Lab assay of single mutants.
Amino acid sequence: MSAKKSPEELKGIFEKYAAKEGDPNQLSKEELKLLLQTEFPSLLKGPSTLDELFEELDKNGDGEVSFEEFQVLVKKISQ
């Protein structure tokens, strides 16, 4: 996936994966893993990378990643 996506496209991608289980407005760690493996495969170099990335993105510590938290990752990789 190209990092150059419109905000609407990014929101659609986020919602597609977030709706798989639990809260449709939040990504669980498994949903984030699936999204990254599919859309940004070069970001995941191993299991520790996912854990570190999830911890970094989950700013409020609720165990899930909101769209706002996800946007931090998108901004970081599009620079």
Results as ranks from 00 to 15, higher is better:
P47D: 10
S28A: 11
S78V: 00
K5T: 11
L53F: 15
K45W: 10
K45Q: 14
E15W: 08
L44S: 08
V74E: 11
L44A: 15
K11G: 03
Q26E: 12
I13R: 01
L57P: 10
L27I: 15
G22A: 06
I13F: 02
E39W: 01
D23P: 04
Q71I: 07
D51H: 05
E52L: 11
F54C: 11
E68W: 06
Q26W: 13
A19H: 10
V72R: 06
S78G: 01
K45G: 08
Q37I: 05
N25W: 01
E69L: 11
P24H: 09
A3H: 07
Q71D: 08
S42E: 15
F14K: 00
S78N: 15
Y17L: 01
G46N: 13
L57F: 10
L10W: 06
G12N: 11
Y17P: 00
G61V: 10
S78A: 15
E69W: 02
K76G: 12
G61Q: 10
S48V: 09
S28P: 09
D51P: 13
A19P: 04
L53V: 13
P41D: 10
E64H: 14
K76L: 02
L43R: 06
F67L: 07
Q79T: 15
S48L: 10
F70K: 00
E9T: 06
E68K: 12
D62Q: 08
K20D: 07
D58P: 06
K29T: 12
E68D: 11
K11P: 01
I13T: 03
K4E: 03
L35F: 03
L36V: 10
E39G: 00
E52R: 08
S48A: 11
S78K: 05
D51K: 08
K45I: 06
E9Y: 09
T49H: 14
L36T: 02
V65E: 00
K45F: 06
L73F: 04
V65Q: 03
E55C: 10
Q26L: 12
E55F: 14
K11H: 03
L35I: 12
N60G: 13
L35C: 06
L34A: 15
K45A: 01
A18Y: 01
P24A: 05
E55W: 12
S42T: 15
K5L: 10
T49P: 07
L32D: 00
T49A: 12
E30Y: 08
Q26I: 11
E52S: 11
K75H: 12
N60L: 09
K33M: 14
M1V: 01
I77V: 03
S42Q: 08
S42H: 05
S66A: 11
L34V: 09
S78R: 02
Y17Q: 01
L43C: 10
F14P: 00
K76R: 05
F40K: 02
L27A: 04
V65C: 07
E52K: 13
E21L: 03
A19S: 12
N25P: 06
V74C: 06
L57H: 09
P7G: 04
L10C: 00
N60P: 11
T38G: 05
D58Y: 11
E56L: 05
G46P: 08
P41Q: 13
E8S: 04
N60I: 11
K16A: 07
G63L: 04
D58Q: 15
A3Y: 15
K20S: 05
F70N: 00
K16N: 06
L44R: 09
S28D: 13
G46K: 11
M1T: 01
E21R: 04
G63S: 07
Q37F: 10
L43I: 10
I13D: 01
S78I: 15
Q37Y: 04
Q37T: 12
L36H: 00
K4Y: 12
S78M: 07
E69T: 10
V72E: 05
L57G: 04
L10D: 01
T38Y: 06
F40N: 05
D51Q: 05
P41T: 11
L57K: 06
S28N: 07
A3Q: 10
L35E: 00
D62E: 14
K11V: 04
E8M: 12
M1S: 01
K45V: 09
F14Y: 13
P24M: 06
E69Y: 08
K76Q: 07
L50M: 10
A3V: 15
S28K: 08
F67W: 08
P24V: 10
E55T: 12
L32C: 05
P47R: 07
P24R: 11
S28T: 05
S78F: 02
E8H: 03
L34S: 08
D23F: 06
E64W: 15
S48E: 14
T49G: 08
M1H: 00
E68C: 06
D62M: 04
L35H: 00
K59L: 14
E15A: 08
A19Y: 04
Q37V: 11
K29R: 13
P41C: 03
K76M: 02
E15Q: 13
E39L: 02
L27T: 01
G61N: 06
D51R: 06
Q71K: 06
L27M: 07
S42D: 08
L34F: 08
E52V: 09
D58I: 13
E68A: 10
E56K: 06
S66P: 04
T38W: 02
L57D: 15
E31D: 14
G22F: 01
I13A: 02
P7L: 12
F54H: 07
D23W: 02
L27W: 00
F70D: 00
T49D: 05
L27P: 00
L43H: 09
P24D: 04
S78T: 15
K59I: 04
D62V: 09
A19V: 07
T38A: 13
E55S: 09
L36K: 00
L10I: 08
G61E: 15
S2M: 15
L57T: 08
I13H: 01
N60Q: 08
K20P: 09
V72C: 06
D62G: 09
T49N: 04
L34Y: 10
L34N: 14
A18M: 03
K33G: 13
K76P: 02
F67H: 04
E21I: 09
K5M: 10
E15N: 08
F67T: 02
Q79C: 09
V72L: 11
E39P: 00
K16G: 02
F54A: 11
L36I: 10
Q37C: 06
I77K: 03
L35G: 01
V65W: 10
G46F: 11
E31W: 03
E31N: 13
K20Q: 14
A19R: 06
S66G: 13
F14V: 00
K33I: 07
E64K: 09
D51E: 06
K33H: 08
P47F: 10
P47Y: 14
N25R: 06
K20G: 10
K45E: 12
I13N: 00
K20L: 06
S2G: 14
G12L: 11
E21Y: 07
F54P: 06
G46E: 09
